[in-house]
Each structure stands twice: as C-alpha cells, then as structure tokens.
Design a protein around this nucleic acid. Structure first.
Lengths: 236, 236
DNA sequence: CGAAAAGTCAAACGTTCGTTTTATTGGGGC
DNA sequence: GCCCCAATAAAACGAACGTTTGACTTTTCG
C-alpha cells in the first residue's frame, strides 16, 4: 500500500539541469515506451532501464505502474486541453465572440497534429495520447469523463457558428472531427506514404493540419446543409 | 517447433452443429477477448477458459498465441476487403463504370460501420479489426502492406470520380475517410452519448453510416475544391 | 555536528506468463 | 479384432511479471 510520496525537490533554480531527476526520467521514458508499445507491452523493467533508474523507483515515486500511466495521461491531457482552450479563446477574441468555423476546427485539431512535429518537442506526448485513447482502460475512462466537460467548450463554439444545427448534430460533427488527428499515427502515415508511392509528404505537419481543417470544414458544413434541406434529392 | 497441424475434420456435413469444434471456439473467444482488451491484455489461459478448451489447445491448433492473432486478423481483413470490393463493384455496375462519390464512400465505410450492429453477427469482428489497427505490431504490419493493394481499388475509383484531383490528394482524402469508421468505437460512442446528454443515438448504425458518408463527402469535395481554385477567398 | 527524511540499490517475494511434455482418449480404415 | 493418429487432458517447464523488503547512501535542516 505504499503511496506516491515523492516530489519533494526544490528544483526551481533557474539553472537548466542537464540531467532531470529520477522521477522525471521515468515519466519521460514511460511515456515514450507506452506510446510505442502500449501499457501491457511495456514492463517496469523496460522503463527503469530506459530511464537508468532502479527497479523499485517506479513504486517509490508513483506507487505502481498503472498510477504512473494515469499520471502521464492526466498531465498530457491537461496540457492538450489547455492548449486547445487557449487557441479557441484567441480565435474568439480575434473575431469578437464567434470565430469562423475553420478557426474552431483549427483550435481543436491544431495541437495534436502540430505536436507530431519532432521539432515541437511534444511528438512523444501526442503519440502517447493517441495510443491511450485507442486502448482505454476502466481507469482512463474516469479521467476521460472529465474531458467531456472540456469538449463542451467546442460544442458551444460550434453551435454558435452553426446556429441552424441542433446540438445533437453538433455533437456528431465534433465526434467525427475530434478523431481526425488521432488517425495521423505513424502506422497510418506510413500506409499513406506507401499508398501514394511516396507522393504524400506526411512530415509537413502544418500542411497536414490545413488539409485536415479543410476536410473537417467540408464535413461539418455538409452535416449542417443536410439539416437545412433545400432541394436535396440524394437517394439510396 | 510444433507447427499448426490441426484442421483435419470432415465437418462439412449439412447438419448445423450446435457446438463448433475446439479450433473454432478458440478462434471466436480469442477474437472477442482481443477486441476487448488487446493482444497483451489477454492470456492464453483467458482464451482457453472462455472457449472451454484445454491450455495446450492453442499451441496445438494454431502454433502460438501470436499466430492465432495473425490468423484471426488475416481472416477478418480478407472478409472486410471482399465486402468492400463487392460493394464497389456493385456501385460501378449500377452506374456504368464511374459511380457517384457518395457510393464509393459508402462502399468503403459501410462494412465496418454496419457490422457494428450486433444484429449483423459481425460486431465482434468489426471491433477486433479496429483494435488491431490501433495497436499494430511488426507482424501485423506485413499483412497490412498487402492491404495497401486493396486500397488502390478505392484510390482508382476516387480518382475517376474526382478527375480534377491529383492522385496524391486522392490518397489524402482516402486517408482521412478510411479512418472514420474506426473511431466509431464503443469508447468514443459512449463519449458521444455522454457529450450529447443521450441525445445522439449511436445504436442506429445505418444512421451513423449516412452521417459518416455525408461528412466524408463534404470533406473529400472540400479537398477537391481547394485544388481547383475558383474565387475562393478563405484566409487564415 | 547529528538525527531525520528522502532517495537509491540489490535481492527476493509470490504470481502469472507462453509453451512443452507426457499420457490418455476415441473414432475410422484395414 | 487391431492399429493409427487426431484430439484432449493434466502437469510441469523456465522465464518474465509487478511489487516489496531491508540495507545503504545522500540530502535536509535545527
């Protein structure tokens, strides 16, 4: 029953420490390994070896392997939500309340896609989040529920930008859109490169984001148009 | 080095056997458990217990746990591809060569989404495929490469329906679209239900498919419109 | 300084893992 | 009858798993 007791370091000195402390090394190594191989695909021995730490360090600093996962997820999800909210607020400020649809979608999809760029220093975090969302455990589900509160921000923003759409339809639009960034995985990107014979450059994340925004914009507007019928005769 | 030697049953008698043989019980139980918990989250003991079989049965009938996974994936991927191809051919026959964009997208997304319906008897298979695609192992990657050949069918079909689009852009469109069904997971659907306060009915798979088709249609056409510029002034 | 706290370490805990071994069963083909 | 062999069963294999223990070192601070 040893709880997580660590984290008593002063550590806020301005000097950039070249070697992070054990707790942080474990955090970063575990995040990378979890992103690559999933929770059950990584052993605590893998983690401590990658972090150059002792076997007991995970229990000591985090309590257990699963609590380590939850801590990483909480941290990264919070960062992602904060960034999305900031971009949404920015767009709202820029346009005095109701930003154009494209800007809302960019605020939603921008962070996870742009973070894929290794130059952002956040590509591991982005991969980790996508992986965690793909294999949700009961523990993670509880954290995700509080994430729903965060998504309400975007439901409201989309509802204001699409007044002709019912809130349920807005939720459907958000459902399809919020998943788009998470299929920008290494595996899918590799498949895309193979499919196009190398013609698609998946390393240009800014271009990928703009394409995703365009696609989502068309998709959301198509849903909106379907609910405001005017001479549509699409049978079958 | 015990290879997979099983499968010597006659078994093709017309009588519907109420209890499938051991090999098939293992196949079905493993498929369900893998879909629920992932490859590393399921032990061979879990599988044989669910299948009412002996511990050694997996090695005997399939060779190993990983070969069991690969066999399930090969089987289901082949079925999915066959169904998609059949629907595409059907649509082409209906319209004399070049079907409308919506029908191509429906052929692509229809099978995995409609199979989510428990009434289809294929919901476990659909879940399994999505899960396997979310956590691709090096073994699976090789099988996926041959899947690329199958996706060429849809690249060609889309290219014919969107002649103004370069093949690379068609691949991008297919990339976004082919992922849409796989975010219709139980977890995401539960989140959608929670987000909408129960307003979104995720059990109506036919309606979900039509929404996905509409969304994808708008998305693909938006990508096409961006490459055939005519007075578009969408800044930022 | 010196005691308390925080952190690290090697070793071992009991459990579960995938696989193999050995023995036994049970129904066709000669 | 008998043998043969696919199929099942129980038991055991060594390896790897997450976690804990207890001793040791380092840091903190009155």
């Amino acid at each position: 029953m040893a709880g997580a007791k660590g984290r008593r370091k002063a550590e806020d000195a301005p000097g950039a420490d070249a070697t992070p402390d054990t707790r942080e090394r474990i955090f970063l190594a575990a995040e990378r390994l979890f992103a690559e191989r999933g929770f059950d695909g990584v052993s605590v021995r893998d983690i401590v070896e990658a972090a150059s730490a002792n076997l007991a360090a995970i229990s000591y600093h985090f309590g257990s392997k699963s609590e380590l996962l939850l801590e990483i997820f909480r941290t990264r999800a919070k960062e992602l939500n904060r960034e999305r909210r900031a971009r949404l607020r920015e767009a709202e400020a820029r346009h005095g309340g109701v930003p154009p649809l494209a800007d809302i979608l960019r605020a939603l999809m921008g962070p996870p896609i742009l973070w894929r760029d290794p130059a952002s220093g956040r590509d591991t975090a982005s991969r980790f989040i996508s992986r965690a969302l793909a294999e949700v455990t009961p523990d993670l589900r509880k954290i995700l529920e509080s994430d729903v509160r965060h998504l309400r921000l975007f439901v409201d923003a989309l509802a204001r930008a699409l007044p002709q759409l019912s809130e349920d339809e807005v939720c459907w639009a958000l459902h399809f859109t919020s998943g788009l960034p998470h299929q920008c995985t290494d595996t899918n990107f590799r498949r895309l490169e193979a499919l196009s014979g190398g013609g698609c450059d998946t390393r240009d994340v800014a271009a990928a984001l703009e394409r995703a925004v365009r696609y989502a914009l068309g998709g959301v507007e198509a849903l909106a148009a379907a609910r405001a019928p005017e001479g549509e005769a699409q049978a079958s």
